[in-house]
Design a protein around this nucleic acid. Structure first.
Lengths: 187, 187
DNA sequence: GTCTATACCGAGATAGAC
DNA sequence: GTCTATCTCGGTATAGAC
């Protein structure tokens, strides 16, 4: 049976993902999440045994979001275009990046500290995008140093998001994105 | 009167700085800090009205640490040497960076979320180093684009620290530091 | 399956004796 | 100035009615 809204479990994950962005998952209480998702607090535990289990679901959701974006980029014909599309989406989201940081980066950095299975799982938030970038560099003709180039691009991306957030300056994203586009053009 | 140990206020700041590194300031309780500093919990409030006030002191301490390092680098004769010394110290601290991230970056990113005066103050953790880098690039002969170059170097630094931490891979620091040194050499 | 009431704990902060 | 005892609040998690 299908109602107008997603089911409660999905609503909880979506709401948690949204609220955790910017203020952090740890600082977001289950009460806040439950209220915003219009689910009684106690009921959360019917869908998730612990708050940590909800965090895992949030990580998976962010990974799905990335994969959806990646699928779009993969439709482009050349690897160089795909790399430029990646940087272009960063540039397009500069307002959001400067205000709340990178959705992947913030989550990965925060959950890493929790340790255990969650830390390992959240590493995928960085590793999956980097592996995809590496593939593009390999295809564009940099078989030897594809790893280095992918790491470089991804570090630059994470760095600009962190610095733009910390200094409240979206110009940082503009400057760095421009530089990265030029750099990709020279490959 | 001077005892063998620093006074209690200093001990609290030092201990808070150390404990907050890696696990975060918010996640570090006053009880933990007081115990490690061998100061009774309730006594903390004689030195700091609130936990936030202690956070401000931690920020100032990190700034002092940076300024001390900067003073050393400033003794070098050329701006290029100073830039290389900066990157060199990153490389030298790669183990620590991969394990706990950048001390400035982690603090700035975390405290930014708190908002208010603390967010503004913690922005200095990024802005002060960037201004110093900018000065070096200007002196080395890049008057026009010193800002862009400084932002680029600092973003790369913050990014490599974040990625090395999230993926638990100190090789990221090695790769990026090498690349940055080569880049500075070409200036 | 769904929701209410509540247990329980650890946090920041305060009162007041010494 | 220093420390102990304690208050209060908000958080996660559980019990159990419906």
């Amino acid at each position: 049976m299908r109602t107008a809204q997603p089911d409660k479990r999905t609503r909880l994950i979506e709401t948690a993902t949204k609220l955790a962005y910017g203020r952090g998952f740890r600082e977001t209480s289950l009460a806040d999440i439950a209220e915003a998702a219009r689910v009684p607090v106690g009921n959360v535990y019917y869908y998730f045994k612990t708050k940590e289990e909800l965090a895992e679901a949030v990580v998976e959701r962010r990974l799905e979001e990335f994969r959806a974006a990646r699928a779009e980029w993969d439709r482009l014909s050349s690897p160089k275009e795909r790399l430029l599309a990646f940087v272009g989406s960063v540039q397009a989201n500069r307002e959001q990046l400067a205000r709340g940081g990178c959705a992947l980066g913030g989550l990965c950095t925060e959950l890493h500290k929790e340790g255990g299975a969650l830390a390992k799982r959240s590493a995928a938030l960085f590793n999956e995008p980097m592996r995809w970038l590496e593939e593009q560099f390999r295809t564009v003709g940099h078989e030897k140093d594809s790893r280095e180039l992918a790491v470089h691009l991804f570090c630059a991306f994470q760095g600009m998001a962190a610095v733009a957030l910390g200094t409240n300056d979206r110009e940082v994203v503009v400057m760095e994105a421009k530089r990265l586009k030029d750099w990709i053009g020279t490959l």
